[in-house]
Each structure stands twice: as structure tokens, then as C-alpha cells.
């Protein structure tokens, strides 16, 4: 019974925060559907890009949390080897994985026989949106983790849902921007 209650206490708060945040992201998705749908195949790319930011900023948050606890970095935005390595890794991963997202999404649209705007456009939007999201997401994650640590909260216990939530917002906005640029550049819609 003790274990059961501790599970409920620990996770209910995290669930409430992440469900509330995610519903707002859902609203953002509705507001951007028009523009997302104007590029055929784009809807297939969305979960891939959203997952990327989770994997990239989630593990960045975990590594920074550990580095703060062990005292190898100070909660300040400065150029030091640890921060540089972590941020560069996050951005490199974002770049490499978004190429993969576009390639696989394109193959899937062919297999499922749904229309797509073509590989070059999916690639452009995915790489621009994904890299932008990883870059902005990394710095936001860093700043929030430092801030949280400074007020005396353990980043390990709160950064998970927070990194996912801010990551979602950053990713949707970056994609929105990338799609807008692609539409201008390739003259779609």
C-alpha cells in the first residue's frame, strides 16, 4: 500500500502538468494545421520532429542535471568545455536525425500511398525546423535547468516534463517558420 501511494503521489503531479501543457500544444497544432496541411506529407513528419526534441533536450537535461550535482559545472551560461560539448552534441543530433525523419517519412508516404510534396521539400522543412528546434531547445533547456537548480529544486525530478513541454512549443514554432520559408522558396500554396 505504501508503494502504491508513493507512485500515485509522485506521478499524478507530473501527469497533471504534462497533460495541461500538452493540451495547449494541441491547440497550437490546431492553429498551425492549415499551414502544415498545405504541404502534403508534412503531418507525417510532425511526430518524428516532436520526438526528436524529446530525445535531444530530454537527455541534455539529464546530463546537465548530473553535471550540476557532481559540481563539474556552475549554473551559469558561459563557454566551458562541458557545456560546449553538450550543446554541440544536441545540435548535431538534431541535424542528423531530422535528415533521417524526412527520408523515412518520404518512404512511408510512398508505401502508404498518400500524397507528398516531394523529398526535397520534406528534407528542407525537416532539417531547417529540426536543427532550429534543437538549437533553441538546447539553450532554453540549459537556462531553465540552471534557474531551477539555483532556486534549490533538483533538476532531475522536474526537468523531464518541463523539457518536453518547452521542447514541444519550440519545435512547433520552428516547424511553422520552416514551412513558411519553404512555401516562399518553392512557391507552394
Amino acid at each position: 500500500m505504501k508503494i502504491r501511494l508513493s507512485v500515485i503521489r509522485e506521478s499524478l503531479i507530473a501527469e497533471v502538468i504534462s497533460i495541461t501543457g500538452a493540451s495547449l500544444v494541441g491547440f497550437g497544432l490546431v492553429k498551425t494545421t492549415g499551414i502544415i496541411h498545405s504541404i502534403p506529407g508534412m503531418l507525417a513528419v510532425i511526430p518524428g520532429i516532436l520526438a526528436l526534441r524529446g530525445g535531444v533536450s530530454g537527455s541534455l537535461a539529464a546530463r546537465i542535471g548530473t553535471a550540476l550535482h557532481t559540481g563539474i559545472i556552475e549554473p551559469r551560461l558561459e563557454i566551458n568545455p562541458i557545456i560546449k560539448t553538450n550543446v554541440l552534441s544536441a545540435i548535431t543530433l538534431g541535424f542528423a536525425e531530422s535528415i533521417l525523419v524526412a527520408l523515412i517519412a518520404y518512404v512511408f508516404t510512398i508505401i502508404a500511398d498518400v500524397p507528398s510534396a516531394g523529398l526535397h521539400i520534406l528534407l528542407f522543412v525537416s532539417v531547417m525546423g529540426g536543427t532550429l528546434a534543437a538549437t533553441i531547445g538546447s539553450f532554453t533547456t540549459l537556462i531553465i535547468a540552471f534557474q531551477v537548480y539555483r532556486v534549490g529544486i533538483d533538476p532531475d525530478s522536474v526537468m523531464g516534463p518541463i523539457a518536453t513541454m518547452t521542447g514541444d512549443v519550440v519545435a512547433i514554432s520552428s516547424l511553422f517558420l520552416a514551412i513558411t520559408v519553404a512555401k516562399q522558396l518553392f512557391g507552394i500554396g
Binding site: L43, P47, N86, S89, I104
Partner: peptide, 30 residues
Amino acid sequence: MRKILTESFPILTIVTIVELLAGIQLEIRS
């Protein structure tokens, strides 16, 4: 940096494929 990349890349690749299976369902019912 190499360590972070080599540890994360394979997992993120699997994850991406699973996610895109989700995405294609969205595209079909768009």
C-alpha cells in the same frame, strides 16, 4: 561528444522510425 553521439544516435533512430509509423496514420486520416 563522440560518446554522447554514438550512444544516442542508434536509440534516436529506432525512436524516429516508431514515431513516423505514428505520423503516417495522421497523414492518412488528415
